[in-house]
Design a protein around this nucleic acid. Structure first.
Length: 572
RNA sequence: CGGGGAGUAGCGUAAUUGGCUAUCGCGCCUGCUUUGGGAGCAGGAGGCUGCAGGUUCAAGUCCUGUCUCCCCGACCA
């Protein structure tokens, strides 16, 4: 491609509303433009990179035995009623009506549609397993779109769905898909980590998120040197070990106007890890007391999954008063005014001589002990893991935190959708069974943003070889010079004929501008053709990722060979 | 949706207490000179100051409404 013919309006400065580095660079390098909040246009350069990513994913999906399909972007309401998601999905679902007032939604994901497709045609165990996938635009009316293409309201996702006769076959295939996802990450050049993103309310279900490690990532990952990794909000927590201690007499302490754990701790001189923090929640209308150690936080996702409720929120002041008989800040497990269920985190059940609220304004209790002073209804892991606590898996090493960008997610769906939509088959005994499903998503557009977050410098993007929109850029220092022009075009022709994506900067611009643009758009290899070196029969080869002065002088033929060698080595 | 900020040319921006023809840089067009890391000179085009009302002799500036965008909290690839 000739640069002068390419629609590539690069910008020297990013628009002020671009919020992260990848968004700034994608806009500056003319890959994308913003139309509206969370809505972006792809320009030729951006689309080229997107297609490269798409092809890597397509290749891995096909290798994993998948077959590509293309589903509609508009789905009828009826399918979503069948699974109950029409009501559950909430405001994130874009809804619309046709001229007859029939209701539809814009695809946020496609379990319903694919299950409908399969249930109509698959009737026998002989037709299973099957995996179908597609690249489709997904629509989600995000509460707060941000970070450019990273969290937009319309994005390109590869979604795959597999159907199996039983859990065992799903387990087998799930591993294949996780491997395929790891392959995609490797080929995109990511530093990544698959992490557990456990079950949720659906029993037996299981999922893995594929995280690209980046400090700007929105997700917090808890990991251990033993190999354990989990989304921090889903990481399991162990029951802490406490030294044996005899129980002292429970005493009331006056704490006038002092209510937070921090303040009461300072006031009493007792460390926060000897506190029982009592939070009053309302779960589907039922008030509950939730106990967690003073230095820990309640994990509402775990709590919600444990209780199996649709709505969970902290109680308001009035409810707190009703339940505890005191204003917010003085709740404790012992002697609650109103009888409510008490959910105790593993961290408090064996905590001896703890400090807790007295359910009385301006008072706390010292030496509170379970069994003697209060009882609980449920004991469970309902807290957030913290950095450097003991790993729940190996039970030896310490947990560390990192940040990540979730670019893919594999789920064992089980029979959640197939049951609701009656996707069944006949087994070899002629008996009807429900299919078991897996689903697997990759954010294709998000991969681009993640790549840039992970690979850029002050001058611009640094594309990995595999997903660069062009593989080589030729920068003739002065295209008006006939010799330079001839050599440049010869290299261009030869590399192009070998299937290399080459961009030749034929613009009547100064070298500085060409170098700046080449660096900004991040083409992995730059061949500079200039008068001085050409006089000695040489051109320059420089890798974008290398320092400014890491230049190889080569004859045009050797330079071509070098490029062919680089790209010949890279599979796919 | 709640709370906070902002809308001036393609991009980034300026405009004392309301005051004259709305500023500057980049980019764009023309010409000349330049030509190895975003060149120089000269000339030029480009604006309903988000939109709609209002106050005033006078509004980019003040008031009301409205739309949009951004930031902080609950979702997700």
């Amino acid at each position: 491609m000739y640069f002068s013919k390419l629609y590539i309006p690069t910008l020297r400065e990013a628009p002020s509303d671009a919020d992260i580095i990848s968004a700034k660079l994608m806009i500056r390098s003319a890959m994308i433009r913003k139309l509206s909040s969370g809505l972006y246009e792809f320009l030729p350069l951006g689309l080229r990179a997107l297609r490269k990513v798409e092809n890597i994913i397509r290749d891995e999906m096909n290798k994993a035995g998948g077959q590509e399909t293309l589903l509609p972007l508009i789905f009828p309401k009826e399918l979503w009623i069948e699974t109950g998601r029409w009501n559950v999905y909430g405001k994130e679902l874009f809804r619309l009506k046709d001229r007859k007032d029939a209701e539809f939604c814009l695809a946020p994901t496609a379990e319903e549609a694919i299950t409908d497709l399969i249930r109509k045609d698959v009737k026998s165990y002989k037709q299973l397993p099957v995996m179908l996938y597609q690249f489709g635009t997904k629509f989600r009316d995000e509460i707060r779109p941000r970070f450019g293409i990273m969290r937009s309201r319309e994005f390109l996702m590869k979604d795959a769905y597999s159907f199996h006769t039983d859990e065992e076959d799903l387990d087998r295939y799930y591993k294949i898909m996780c491997q395929a996802y790891a392959n995609v990450c490797k080929r995109c050049g990511f530093k990544f980590r698959p992490v557990e993103a456990a079950s949720g309310a659906i029993g037996g279900s299981f999922s893995h998120e594929f995280m690209v490690l980046a400090d700007t990532g929105e997700e917090k990952i808890a990991h251990c040197e033993c190999g354990y990794g989990a989304n921090a909000e889903k990481a399991e927590c162990l029951e802490p070990e406490y030294a044996k201690e005899s129980e002292f007499e429970k005493t009331e302490v006056s704490t006038p106007g002092i209510s937070s754990v921090e303040d009461v701790s300072k006031f009493t001189g007792v460390a926060p890890d000897k506190f029982i923090k009592t939070m009053i929640y309302v779960a589907d209308g039922e008030p509950l007391a939730v106990l967690v150690r003073g230095d820990y936080e309640v994990n509402e996702i775990k709590l919600q999954a444990l209780l199996g409720v649709a709505e969970l929120a902290l109680a308001d002041e009035k409810t707190i008063q009703e339940v505890t008989g005191a204003p917010c800040g003085f709740a404790g497990p012992s002697g609650l005014k109103k009888k409510v269920r008490i959910i105790a985190d593993l961290s408090v059940v064996n905590l001896k001589n703890a400090v807790a609220g007295a359910n009385k304004k301006d008072a706390h209790l010292k030496n509170v002990n379970a069994a003697r002073d209060y009882s609980y209804d449920i004991k469970a892991d309902i807290r957030n893991i913290t950095e450097s606590e003991t790993c729940p898996r190996c039970k030896k090493s310490k947990i560390s935190f990192s940040r990540g960008i979730e670019i893919g997610h594999c789920f064992k769906l089980g029979t959640k959708y197939s049951k609701a939509m009656n996707a069944s088959y006949l087994n070899s005994d002629g008996k009807e069974n429900i299919m078991v499903m897996g689903c697997y998503g990759i954010g294709v557009t998000r991969i681009l943003a993640a790549t840039i977050e992970q690979s850029h410098d002050d001058n611009g993007i640094i594309w990995p070889d595999n997903i660069a929109p062009f593989e080589v850029i030729i920068a003739p220092v002065n295209f008006a010079d006939l010799k330079i022009k001839e050599v440049s075009e010869n290299i261009y022709q030869e590399l192009s004929s070998k299937g290399i994506d080459v961009l030749i900067d034929d613009r009547d611009e100064r070298a500085g501008i060409k170098f700046k643009d080449a660096d900004l758009i991040g083409i992995p290899y730059r061949i500079t053709v200039g008068e001085k070196n050409l006089a000695a029969g040489n051109v320059e080869l420089k890798a974008r990722r290398d320092a400014k002065d890491a230049i190889k002088l080569l004859s045009p033929q050797d330079c071509i060979k070098e490029i062919l060698k680089i790209y010949g080595k890279i599979c796919g």
